[in-house]
Write a protein that binds this DNA or RNA. Structure first.
Length: 831
RNA sequence: GGACGGUUAGCUCAGCGGUAGAGCGCUUCGUUUACAUCGAAGAUGUCAGGGGUUCAAAUCCCUUACCGUCCACCA
């Protein structure tokens, strides 16, 4: 053995050997109880960063359980990372003087696909460098066909249950990147904005966005504001930069009389608050800013200007016309920025797919409250609840090409002459508009599948949408499902349903046995003159004129399904049942706390919804690795440290140990070079302890001493006081490390191991035994060292394996068993 | 505007009800025949400030300050 441990001679060779021998597969413990972790999917196009290095926690758990005899599965996978990847690619295009707009959708998709394929496999190699015992034969990709199928099925189920619906709403739209984002993806930033006080006829109002005034469809005041009471309900004639126009004054509770002048302009198409106010007062949506970020024709001579330019030009002209009373230059507000390009997001009205969150969030909350899912460290429970309790519907449409296309089809509605009308009570109209796809009837409308009909508001007699019948069920009231989300309304008891029917047809004397018809339909709405039908399914429906939804799913929509989509598409290849049955729910979901709402909470919701079971039993969250000065690593700051360089320099074992040692689970840490150096020295110390023992071996006559003894055997043969003490200490250490690992107290275990190995075993025990070595004490020395190695193996897999193989003539430590200790032995022999 | 986390030795951080801990650094001595090193011994802290609970508080409660993070549609 060399005097110094050289990780470069060891790590690559050993990893290859492990992988070739199939040690990472759960099959190596065929009888074991299942233990499973799904690795958070890494960006297929990405490179390793310290966030990935923290997954060492998962490797520790997997190696620990594998040695304990579990059938342990650690399943890797990669994510197409839609927005991330498309934007990286677009940046490349820009460098070549091109843009995404120069290509057709299909072309762009192919280009990105090729680009990703060229880079794929990179991150997997890097994860191997860290020693991660991932079952690579089971690796999945979010764009694998069978994964996509599962994503489609989930979407279809959501649609059929009335939980996925299409609605035109204001979305956070980045006019630079050309896509909308979910609420979570908006970065809010405090900014100093100019607050303009603008004259609206006799009124003055304050706004930061004078350029949206062309989209104003009202001005609002608080209903109790005495100053303005006389104007409410009036139509004011006002002077604008485009000449005279008229505007209505409304009263709305949402107006804060204290802010500005207490008057606010209502621009439903460009402000989230105003959109809501507009809905309450049935104000028209007047979009004056286009998806290209430019003013449209409503802006008159300002049309074609970008928002910023338009604001400047309009303000100048207003000032010239004396329409601006004053400008407050010290006003602070928060603006929503695109998390990718940092441009200001424009709230724009767009028709998108939304997922109703409340029905999904409730069981996810309940799962944690009832301890079916446990969160570690416990402090994160609050954040989990906070997010789920205040959740809003999730916008899952993205206007990018790199992603899973949405299996939905639209077509323009062409009413036929003999269009049939189906009446809906006024109060059910909102249900239909938000995605109701079933209706119960007591009258046979003589519909056939494929028939078209118009939705009519029975009270106002107005047509508000169209539909095509896709399924008809003839039944009786008593057999109508009460908890049918696709019907919009759900009933707790049959009584309520019968009441509802009586409301519409009192003359029939409805009972459970009354005949009923259930019509399921695809639906389309009348909106601003546009009419279209919606159909959900992968295949183009029969009929003319269907066009597929051009959008793709939010990447997190597929990620949210990762625990079951990976397991449903994997098997143990012996035909004895799929991985889903065996490994779902997974044992632990381990990831950085920063994606708790983005990913973990959504997995909990979607997992429970789709499979009826929790997706994982435990949530374990690790902290962030900051730069040595404690600042968050980021490309823009230029302080990103490449973990591979650190691995090259210190060895994977040292990097792993340094990340665990002295850092409480879930806490952030700063990358510490002294700690890395200390960990490197620790690997070297272990190496030299082994070297010392090897040297002693030659002094011993009995050469059969290579076999390690169990704790029980050691206890029996220890004669010398110091030997007995050592055996006792090793037993206690085994117990402590086992407990700490089971409780996810990785740092405790690492610290105890470091302390015991170095300061007890090496400094005290070896120093003592050195001068009195004989066959008996050598056995103790050798065997307790091997136990130490096994305890250390989950943390430092490479050195421990290299030494172990030398001691055991090539046998792997990975297929040895975790040491058991007399006191709390699980009743299994330790070898 | 809400919420969470942090504030402990020069530095990086553990500890979270029972007389202050680790790594690195520092001081002294020793070793260089397991250890590009290692060992032995040592110094160093009103555990952010204030108040409270307790026989006992770095550890629980309240409060203040500073730092950090997350969430939130105020023109």
């Amino acid at each position: 053995m060399d005097k110094v441990y050289n990780h470069k001679d060891v790590e690559e060779r050993i990893y290859k050997d492990w992988e070739e021998k199939g040690y990472f597969k759960p099959e190596i413990n065929p009888q074991g109880k299942p233990y499973s972790i799904i690795l958070p999917p890494t960006n297929a196009n990405g490179a390793l960063h310290f966030g990935h290095a923290m997954y060492v926690v998962e490797d520790i758990l997997i190696r620990f359980h594998r040695m304990k005899g579990f059938s342990a599965l650690w399943l890797p996978g990669t994510d197409h990372a839609g927005i991330e990847t498309q934007f990286v690619f677009e940046k490349k295009l820009r460098e070549q003087g091109k843009s995404r707009l120069d290509f057709k959708r299909e072309e762009l998709y192919e280009m990105i696909k090729n680009y990703v394929n060229e880079n794929r496999g990179g991150i997997e190699k890097q994860l191997r460098r860290l020693g991660f015992s991932l079952d690579w034969s089971r690796e999945k990709y979010t764009l694998d066909n069978n994964v996509i199928e599962i994503v489609y099925d989930t979407f279809k189920k959501l649609f059929a249950d009335g939980l996925a619906y299409r609605a035109k709403r204001l979305v956070n739209y980045c006019t630079f990147d050309g896509t909308s984002f979910s609420d979570l993806e908006v970065v809010h930033e405090e900014r100093k904005s100019l607050l303009y006080y603008i004259k609206y006829g006799p009124l003055v109002l304050a706004t930061t966005r004078p350029e949206t005034k062309f989209g104003d469809t009202a001005v609002a005041v608080h209903p109790n504001d005495k100053r303005y009471k006389k104007y409410v309900g009036q139509e004011l004639e006002i002077e604008t930069v485009l000449g005279k126009t008229k505007i209505k004054v409304i009263a709305d509770e949402s107006v804060d009389p204290e802010f500005g002048t207490g008057v606010v302009k209502i621009t439903p198409a460009h402000d989230f608050n105003d959109f809501e106010t507009g809905k309450r007062h049935k104000l028209p949506l007047k979009q004056v800013i286009g998806f290209d970020g430019k003013m449209n024709h409503y802006a008159g001579k300002f049309a074609g200007l970008y928002v910023k330019q338009a604001r400047k030009a309009i303000v100048e002209e207003m000032q010239a016309k004396g329409l601006i009373e004053k400008i407050d230059e010290n006003y602070q507000n928060r603006v929503g920025l695109c998390y990718k390009c940092r441009n200001i997001l424009e709230p724009l009205p767009l028709e998108q797919w939304f997922v109703r969150m409340e029905p999904l969030a409730k069981p996810a909350i309940e799962a944690v409250k009832s301890k079916k899912i446990k969160i570690y460290p416990k402090g994160f429970e609050k954040r989990y609840f906070q997010f789920l309790e205040n959740i809003r519907d999730w916008n899952i449409s993205r206007q990018i090409v790199w992603g899973i296309s949405i299996p939905a089809w639209f077509r323009e509605w062409k009413p036929t002459k003999d269009i049939v009308i189906m009446g809906f009570h006024q109060r059910t109209e909102p249900q239909v508009l938000s995605g109701k796809t079933k209706t119960y009837r007591l009258r046979d409308h003589d519909f056939k599948v494929g028939d078209k009909f118009a939705f009519e508001n029975s009270q106002t007699k107005k047509i508000f949408g169209y539909g095509t019948i896709i399924d008809i069920e003839r039944t009786v009231v008593g057999k109508i499902p009460l908890d049918d989300r696709a019907h919009g309304a759900t009933y707790k008891e049959r009584k309520e349903l019968i009441e509802a029917f009586k409301f519409h047809k009192p003359e029939l004397g409805v009972t459970e046995k009354t005949k009923a018809w259930i019509y399921a339909y695809s639906f389309g709405f009348l909106r601003e003159g546009q009419v279209h039908e919606i159909y959900v399914g992968e295949k183009k429906p029969i009929g003319e004129g269907w066009i597929q939804d051009k959008d793709t799913f939010d990447t997190w929509f597929s990620s949210a399904q990762w625990p079951f989509s990976t397991l449903m598409t994997n098997c143990d290849c012996k035909g004895s049942g799929g991985f889903f049955d065996k490994f779902y729910p997974t044992s632990v979901m381990e990831t950085g706390y920063d994606i708790l709402p983005w990913w973990v909470a959504r997995m909990a919701m979607v997992g429970i919804y789709r499979t009826g079971k929790i997706p994982f039993k435990n949530i374990l969250l690790h902290g962030l690795v900051n730069d040595p000065l404690g600042k968050k690593m980021s490309k823009s700051k230029g302080n990103v440290v490449n973990p591979l360089e650190i691995v090259n320099q210190y060895g994977a074992d040292a990097v792993r140990f340094a990340l665990i040692y002295g850092n409480a689970t879930g806490n952030d840490q700063s990358l510490s070079y002294p700690k890395l150096e200390a960990a490197r020295k620790f690997t070297n110390k272990l190496w030299n302890m082994a070297r010392f023992i090897e040297m002693q071996k030659s002094k011993i006559k009995n050469q059969k001493l290579e076999n390690n003894l169990t704790m029980e055997q050691l206890e029996n043969i220890a004669k010398h006081e110091k030997d007995k003490e050592m055996v006792k200490k090793i037993g206690e250490l085994t117990e402590k490390v086992t407990e700490d690992l089971e409780k996810y107290n990785f740092n405790y275990a690492a610290e105890a191991l470091y302390e015991s190995a170095w300061h007890e075993f090496a400094d005290k025990y070896i120093e003592d035994v050195k001068n009195r070595i004989n066959e008996n004490s050598f056995l103790i020395l050798n065997s307790s060292f091997l136990i130490l190695l096994k305890l250390l193996h989950p943390f430092m897999p490479f050195v421990t394996e290299e030494i172990y193989q030398r001691f055991k003539f090539g046998k792997s430590i990975m297929i040895d068993r975790w040491p058991s200790f007399a006191k709390a032995s699980e009743g299994k022999p330790s070898l």
